[in-house]
Write a protein that binds this DNA or RNA. Structure first.
Lengths: 335, 335
DNA sequence: CTGAAAGCGCTTACAG
DNA sequence: CTGAAAGCGCTTACAG
């Protein structure tokens, strides 16, 4: 070990570089080591260090969809909490897929300090070996004993149904996602259940991937039928789907919200500036990331998550209805 | 080492798990080891293995903007080439930023088998310690001795200028990016130079981040002035910028392409289905990722990249002009 | 073909 | 306060 050439043992160097000098190293030696370290540009080797202490200082974030503006904000939230202490790395899988069991094993063999798992499927969790500290994000609808942070999407769906019913809509369509994530099932079921309670009919459902043009095409295909059924509002399971509907509505020269109201979930930045602005259920993405980061940090510090005074194993973040032009001034629809 | 309980030495087990049995292990022992491995669910520990061989089997992809549909396709390309042999991990930095020198050192201390660096700034490369195998992606305009794969964005810009001149445009505006990436400078300069050669005036330039609504606002602010100057086309440095312009043009009830032609760079999926479809310079993202992955694989195999028959250290992928409705039937603009 | 041994670069009890 | 030593889990010459 090069830095040992600064006149002390490797043990002392190790104590200094890992900051465990409290009452164990003389200030004299600390200074010597620090100088040698900076002279040699020495960096502690992550591999040796990790092997010796049993785990690395990386945190792996596993997610099905890395490139998605919504998820970008989640990542940013995570980074702002744990970035200083740990090296955050994203696992890369086939688009829209969770890692296979084999990939997970490879990941785990790097001995990450912790794991963050976004939007896991039930099968993924079942196949996941009980590894070290782990926090789940956005896992609505999936059972798990692991600590998790979620959005209250069901409450948002209820607010949305109230809003549409209040505007006089009686027949609506629901545009769902075809990715199997449970959160979409929860959104749909909560909305449909409450809508029926309010006397609204959810006339039809369709589903596409989370993609503007796929949603646009699906809407274009379904609209003639929906129109015949008297649909006056389309509730989309994500803002991205809603963008597709708005786009196609424009092509078809439909008046939004006069002839058709459109809503989404997420509140992506674009929803504020689209024309008309999109009424949507705001899901606080960055806060989700931050909360998950904090949970993991607590876990890593050995804190009990469910002890007295703790925030609890399972956190739920409030969602919120943001009303904009895509529903605001809806004309009262006919029967 | 647990698997040694299968009746052989750890050395033999290691030979089997790393697939180096050729003429060194009896088929009898291979079978025994394989059975023990599967019975015990043994996975080679990445840390110990990496430490012993001097490098890990992870490849780190460093990029300034992970969540961007264009980059998602690059990632997918990389994954398809190297995914089987290496664990691909994405470094996570503050949105739009390259990792700091300190972050890079931490990354490097994990001893990645190789590094892939997307859209690096000159400063980043200068600060990068000469590490192991590395391939640069999309590094147009930045000097470096490292192997790289690039788009021929300048050639695409020239095709675009030709196309607009052929349609009769004489005054155009350029909507640039404010992220400092060199590729944007190259796009702009190549376009402006050739446009002037063709007798077109590039009346005005503006810049925003790569964001639909930022671009929309910038266009809304600039349009009155541009209109006075006789601008009949807006050339955008990315499709995302162009979406903002299209959106705002719709709000302002501008006829595209009758009153205003709009173009982009990238050819994102949405450009095909937007209305009108977007004329754009197609940059083959997935192919960029694949080519970079292949280069890195060669480097890791110890191949010389510039030897005879090799593909060369520096690859350039052709860009291509895709003409769609946003320019197709432009009316001849007045003076 | 096989195993005992050294070593990868660190950290952490343990004596002093 | 400090250093010699053991050990983290593997791989790879090296003898046999």
């Amino acid at each position: 070990m090069v830095a040992a050439r600064a006149g002390v043992s490797t043990a002392t160097v190790s104590l200094v570089t890992s900051g465990k000098t409290a009452g164990r190293v003389s200030t004299d030696n600390i200074a010597k080591v620090e100088q040698a370290v900076s002279e040699l540009g020495y960096v502690v080797d992550g591999l040796g260090s990790s092997l010796a202490r049993g785990r690395s200082n990386i945190v792996i974030l596993v997610a099905p969809d890395v490139s998605n503006p919504f998820f970008a904000r989640v990542i940013d939230g995570v980074r702002s909490e744990i970035g200083a202490a740990f090296q955050l790395l994203l696992s890369v899988t086939e688009a829209g897929q969770m890692p296979t069991p084999a990939e997970v094993r490879t990941l785990l063999s790097l001995r990450p300090a912790g794991l963050l798992v976004d939007a896991p499927s039930a099968e993924f969790l079942a196949a996941l070996p009980a590894a070290g500290p782990m926090v789940l994000l956005d896992t609505a609808g999936v059972e798990s004993a692991a600590p998790s942070v979620n959005f209250d999407v069901a409450a948002g769906a209820v607010l949305l149904a109230d809003h549409l019913a209040g505007l006089g809509h009686t027949t609506v369509a629901y545009l769902d996602s075809t990715t199997g994530t449970e959160t979409f099932r929860v959104r749909r079921e909560a909305f449909c259940r409450h809508a029926r309670t309010l006397g609204m009919e959810v006339a039809a459902q369709a589903g596409t991937t989370i993609d503007v043009s796929a949603a646009a095409q699906a809407f274009a295909g379904a609209w003639p039928q929906w129109q015949r059924q008297g649909v006056t509002a389309v509730v989309c399971c994500t803002d991205t789907h809603a963008y597709g509907v708005l786009q196609e509505a424009r092509v078809a020269r439909l008046d939004v919200p006069g002839q058709l109201a459109v809503t989404g979930f997420d509140d992506l930045p674009y929803s504020e500036t689209s024309s008309p602005g999109l009424t949507t259920v705001r899901l606080p993405a960055a806060e989700l990331g931050r909360a998950a980061g904090r949970q993991l940090l607590r876990l890593l510090a050995g804190e009990e998550l469910d002890g007295p005074g703790a925030a609890g194993r399972s956190l739920t973040l409030d969602s919120e209805l943001v009303v904009r032009g895509s529903t605001a001034s809806s004309a009262a629809p006919g029967p």
